[in-house]
Each structure stands twice: as C-alpha cells, then as structure tokens.
Design a protein around this nucleic acid. Sequence first.
DNA 1: CACCAGGCAAGTA
DNA 2: TACTTGCATGGT
Length: 222
Amino acid sequence: MGRKNKILMEIFESLAQTFGQQHWWPAETTFEVAVGAILTQNTTWNNTILAINNLKTSGLLSLEALAQVDQSILAEKIKPAGYYNLKARRLQNFLGFIMNDLGGRFDALFQGPLAGLRENLLRIRGIGPETADKILLYAGGLPTFVVDAYTRRILVRHGLVSEDDGYDEIRDMFMNHLPDDAELFNEFHGLFVRTGNLYCRPKPRCQGCPLEHMTNSYSGEY
DNA sequence: CACCAGGCAAGTA
DNA sequence: TACTTGCATGGT
C-alpha cells in the first residue's frame, strides 16, 4: 500500500508489541460508549468514570431516562467530568436527535453509509469530529479513524504531520494509507492514547517511548 | 501552588 | 478565514 502505509504500520506494530491488545472502549453497552464519548471531551478518563457511575447508580444511563431527565439534575450527576452544564446540554442534544430524528432507535445511528452517518452526528450541537468518530468506531464498529490530542502530538513530534494540519487531514492520512479495518483503527487509537498518556505530554517527557527508536524523523523536540 | 486533561462552539476582526 | 475565549472538576 505504499511508503506511508509502511511507516504507519511500523508505528502500530511497535506499539502493539509493547502494550498488547487495548480492547478499548471499556463500557457495558454501546449506549454507554456514546455517552462516555461526550463526557470525556477535554477531560481525563478517570473523571469520566466518576460521572458515568453517577449516571448508572441514578438509573439515568438509558435512552428514555437521559432524554427526559431535567437538565439541571443531569448536570449535577455528571459534575465530576467538568463542564457539567455544557455537557448536560450536549448529552440532551444528542438524545434529542435519537428520539426525534431516529424515532428513538439508537442503532439507526450506525445504519447506512459512513459519510452520511458522520455528517448527521456533526450537525448535533456539541458533537465535533473526534466525538463523532469515537461514537461511530467504538459504539458502531464502523471503520473511521479517531484523531485526538495525543495522536496529533505524537505525529507532529515524529514529523509525520504539520502543526497546523486540521482534524480531517490527519484522519484522511490514516484512512488513505491503511486498510479499511475497524479493528485496526480501534486498536491503533487505543495505542496512541496509551502512549500519549505515558510518554507524550505537552512538556516533552518522551524517555522510554516505544517509538524512540524511529529517530530518523524526530524533529529535535525530544 | 500551577498546570493539565482523549473538545467544541461562539465571539471577534 | 483565522484567532481567542468560555466552559470546570480532579489528579500530579
């Protein structure tokens, strides 16, 4: 599949070798995945779990309950995830789309051509490209690539994308040079998150990164 | 104490 | 179009 494919697969193999299977995303249901995708926006996974657990113990983690609960009550429940007023609104925007536009059928989010499904999600206030791709890939099992802050930072530090490349450019790079494989995309993103968490912080703290040996393209920020 | 986290949208010029 | 700002809790 070309040179870019080789580089990307080398990165994937190197990380997979080091960290093994990630089997991301940890959740009991696909609905929980989608809710978690919104709650985790610009927030740590740990804080997201606290919020999800509050929803579970309050019996709010279902289509009907989440669609109907008072927004201020919802906000209180998800407080640990931060931006709670904003995210309560975003969750209910998402639920409104499912109830009003999909007739309450959550699975309809994933039925039809990928591009159209993604556009539908992007029209919802509070769902941007990363959240849309997370929902489609991790809840729907559809082959779309998730680009997050870690993915971007790792690629920039390896000189594979430029600082000002947009979300879709980076996503396209993966999708144009890798096979259309949801399992691969799923694992790849999980591995980027793991690597980013451990080794690729804003202030370079890259010692011991499994990708350290690919020094030919390092830009000197290491 | 300062800084940061798996974004996104609205406001400004 | 390009840049800035608000949103907020919890861990290091």
